[in-house]
């Protein structure tokens, strides 16, 4: 009887401390032992980088209710800032240059967030497009930023921290996982702090928030800075741990939309949502191509695959927005409750 209760209690606490501990133990302990290079390189590392970007955007859009279409720009700022820091400051430890990159991205976010003091909703989203286009332009035009490489392509520095190399596929996965875990803990603390409460207050009722004494302008700018900090570091992971060689075009508007979709599909205003959404976005094309392979005939060619992918994604976003605006996170919560009910 007691064991039955203990067992049934297990899935209940997936988002509780036990669930998180199990998840971390699996990710740090089990997965590196059994995973293949393909799993690390093609699935887990991009998943982690995108989840982190989603997490950052979720702080801004999900919690503070400020819509941004400039996420990819802040990823690019982070990636290129880390590249320049490690290139131009010899002997700078990698964690420091990543932290510095986050701060540079935060500063960029702060500037891009200035229109938020006047604009909201779609008008604000459109104004963040300015950041998107300006960053792409600057990276292409200012050779210094990419150390004068043709078309702004940069190569990742060696991933070595305190003598430990994270160069192979497993190492890059573990490196990303550590960064993502640390920043997720920080984000978790943030959203539960009074500042996190202020973000939601501004999102839900800006006037009431001002009346109870929330410093609205400062909190909005803070949301942009914190969000861009996280997104910038996601950009570092994307460039250094996943792709290893990036060009500015890799951080275009499509990427911004991809991150926005991650947040919408995963669930606005939840930390889990970014991970669920990123998992979905990464796995979807792989699942579709597998599906194509088992279908009769020639299966999909790559062009068809991409088209099908876009159609499915578009349809899903419409479906999510209509049926479950709170995203996969809410869906999972409900499923969890349903499963629990009979017990």
């Amino acid at each position: 009887m007691t064991t039955a209760i203990a067992l049934s209690a297990k899935p209940r606490n997936l988002s509780g401390p036990v669930g998180v501990a199990v998840l971390l133990a699996t990710a740090f302990g089990l997965v590196p032992l059994v995973g293949s290079d393909y799993l690390f390189e093609a699935i887990l590392t991009p998943f982690l980088a995108l989840a982190l970007a989603g997490l950052g955007l979720n702080l801004l859009t999900g919690y503070a209710g400020l819509l941004s279409l400039g996420s990819a720009a802040f990823m690019a700022v982070g990636a290129y800032a880390a590249f320049n820091l490690s290139l131009r400051v010899p002997g700078l430890p990698l964690p420091v240059s990543i932290l510095g990159a986050g701060l540079v991205a935060a500063a960029a976010g702060l500037v891009a967030g200035l229109p938020a003091l006047r604009l909201r909703g779609f008008y604000l989203a459109v104004s963040t497009l300015a950041a998107q286009f300006f960053v792409a332009w600057a990276l292409n035009r200012i050779g210094w930023l990419s150390n004068d490489s043709p078309s702004g392509v940069i190569n990742a520095p060696r991933l070595v921290v305190a003598g430990l190399s994270f160069e192979d596929a497993r190492g890059r996965y573990l490196f990303s996982l550590t960064v993502v875990a640390l920043l997720t803990v920080a984000a978790w603390r943030l959203v539960r702090s009074p500042t996190g409460r202020n973000l939601v207050a501004i999102r839900d009722q800006e006037i009431a928030a001002r009346i109870v004494g929330v410093k609205v302008a400062r909190t909005k700018l803070l949301a942009f800075a914190l969000s861009s900090f996280v997104v910038g570091i996601a950009g570092v992971l994307w460039a250094f741990a996943y792709l290893r060689t990036v060009e500015p075009a890799g951080f275009n508007l499509d990427r911004s939309f991809q991150i926005l979709f991650i947040v919408i599909i995963g669930g606005l205003g939840t930390l889990r949502g970014a991970f669920l959404g990123a998992g979905f976005i990464v796995v979807l094309p792989l699942a579709l191509s597998r599906l194509g392979a088992v279908l009769p005939g020639d299966g999909f060619d790559s062009g068809t695959l991409e088209m099908v992918q876009r159609i499915v994604l578009g349809a899903l976003i419409v479906a999510v927005l209509i049926r479950e605006p709170a995203g996969l996170a809410a869906l999972l919560d409900r499923a969890g409750r349903r499963l629990r009910l009979p017990a």
Partner: peptide, 16 residues
């Protein structure tokens, strides 16, 4: 009220 917050958090926000 702040719809995304609990009753307790709403009251806490009065101390912002």
């Amino acid at each position: 009220l702040f719809k995304g917050l609990s009753v307790f958090e709403n009251v806490l926000s009065g101390l912002a």
